[in-house]
Design a protein around this nucleic acid. Structure first.
Lengths: 146, 146
DNA sequence: CTTAGTGCAAAACCTTTGCAACTCT
DNA sequence: AGAGTTGCAAAGGTTTTGCACTAAG
């Protein structure tokens, strides 16, 4: 279910943006690292061996762009840098994040129970909700053993 | 239900920390600005007129300390700086944040429906959950009118 | 050929840290 | 007195920006 090159190109041109090798490579980095939450620096490290002179600025600009195009999700786990994950298009139900306070690992959790809560809250608060983010902090199984 | 000076002093001394005028003033800033989510710079601006030579470093160190003592909650609304809110001690049920994507305003929302979701997720995922954070992004009533 | 994108280095931010002077307890 | 705190300035880390050059449509 990965996004195809044609789809990427189309999304970009809708935005008056061009398909460059750098952008392709950066998106590919996420496809090659599923379930990970890459920072700009992570992405830069992954991509540098393939294009040694790619600049950090390009990475930042591309991450911003792909987030605007909803191909990536920008998120924050409180470690002082933004992290990104690929936006799966079959996202009929959403996923949340379980963050281990000891080792920092981030685990994904699938769920659709939040939907009803969201509509209830939207109604009560007079807010038009378009997105949400739910994070749980705690201790993972491995860390608890120690 | 505000925290008293004696309570603050006690909490501090439990932590081998001292009660200084700076710390008092910073906590007071939050008591004077309920329902707001102040950044370090906000706090510095509030406090500077009262103690012109208070340094930013002290503000940062105090915010960190008060968060450790659970008197403040540190949070992130994606605007590139940490924000803090006072931790009410009658927090039997939790509150979430509705963030307007247009004007940036943050509205609080009381709720306890998440409790059951949390225990369900903890069980399924084998994670010991100690805290959570739920944010909704959307458009507030005022911005929708425009 | 026109418009957009890139790399580089500098700058802009927010936050942390080292240190000498100071102040609570 | 002694441990902890402060202010300052410098340093750290992440992200943004200006600009000349290059490449995509």
């Amino acid at each position: 279910m990965s996004i195809t090159l044609a789809e990427l190109k189309q999304k970009l041109s809708q935005n008056h943006s061009k398909l460059t090798p750098q952008r392709q490579m950066i998106l590919q980095a996420f496809l090659n690292h599923p379930e990970e939450h890459l920072s700009a620096e992570d992405v830069h490290q992954i991509v540098k061996p393939l294009a040694s002179d790619i600049g950090v600025a390009t990475v930042y600009r591309t991450l911003e762009l792909l987030s605007e195009l909803k191909l990536l999700n920008k998120m924050d786990f409180g470690d002082g840098r933004s992290r990104y994950e690929i936006q799966k298009n079959d996202e009929s139900h959403c996923h949340h994040h379980l963050i281990c306070l000891s080792c920092g690992k981030v685990k994904e959790f699938e769920d659709d129970l939040l939907e009803s809560l969201e509509t209830a809250i939207a109604k009560k608060s007079n807010f038009t909700i378009v997105d949400h983010q739910l994070k749980f902090y705690g201790y993972c199984q491995e860390c608890r053993k120690q």
